[in-house]
Design a protein around this nucleic acid. Structure first.
Lengths: 109, 109
DNA sequence: AAAATTGTTCGCGTTTCGCGTACATCCATT
DNA sequence: AATGGATGTACGCGAAACGCGAACAATTTT
């Protein structure tokens, strides 16, 4: 299960095995083992991988099929950052306005 | 981390080591090892424990120590909607660009 | 075409797992 | 107080799985 998820996520991100191995400070072959199903990552590694991929351990382990719960931005009651800086409530309002406007333009094309 | 969480949860539920061991089909001493930190459960066991305790693997592993998960948008592998419509990956790129530009302007004021 | 990067597989040494066992502790019933 | 049963703790053993480096194939870059 986890091997499939890791493989999918990495391909989506177009990351190399080496890149991920470097991030976690493990050997390339070690991470490759995770994807092939030949090895199982430690609990600590699972945690780090979830963070690296921006997903949850529940998704990696197959406890859920959702990479992330679907969030309606207009109800945003969660914490989000861009470039490490918190996205403020004001900024969210701007983002929503911007997106609505952009979608409106696309529709008229 | 996980040992602490398991111990807390079990005590809160007032379950015995034996009971949990029976549920997972493992030896009492094996589960005891998880709580003492002497052993680490397999990924499969973590999944089952999360279900048994009615919690998430993220909680057991301490991936969600914080009340609300922080999500870095530029790393987004998660699902988001605005007005009920999925925010596409392309749109996220636009949103990030927009926000960066806006922040830049604010700084210069 | 050569060089570099990426992905796959395997053997080896080491770590750590799961189990059974032994023992201490706590409670309830007598 | 004494006894029996459930509970929690610790450890040794054999087996299983880990992480690494190395070797090689496949792909991409120069």
């Amino acid at each position: 299960m986890i091997s499939k998820r890791l493989s999918e996520l990495r391909k989506k991100k177009q990351w190399s095995l080496q890149y991920i191995a470097d991030q976690l400070n493990i050997a390339k072959s070690t991470y490759a083992g995770y994807e092939s199903g030949y090895r199982q990552p430690s609990l600590e590694a699972v945690k780090e991988l979830a963070i690296l991929f921006g997903t949850t351990t529940d998704y990696l382990l197959g406890a859920t099929d959702e990479e992330q719960p679907t969030i309606e931005l207009t109800n945003a009651a969660f914490h989000m950052t861009v470039d490490g800086e918190t996205v403020t409530e004001d900024e969210i309002v701007w983002l929503i306005a911007f997106l609505r406007a952009k979608r409106d333009i696309e529709k008229k094309k």
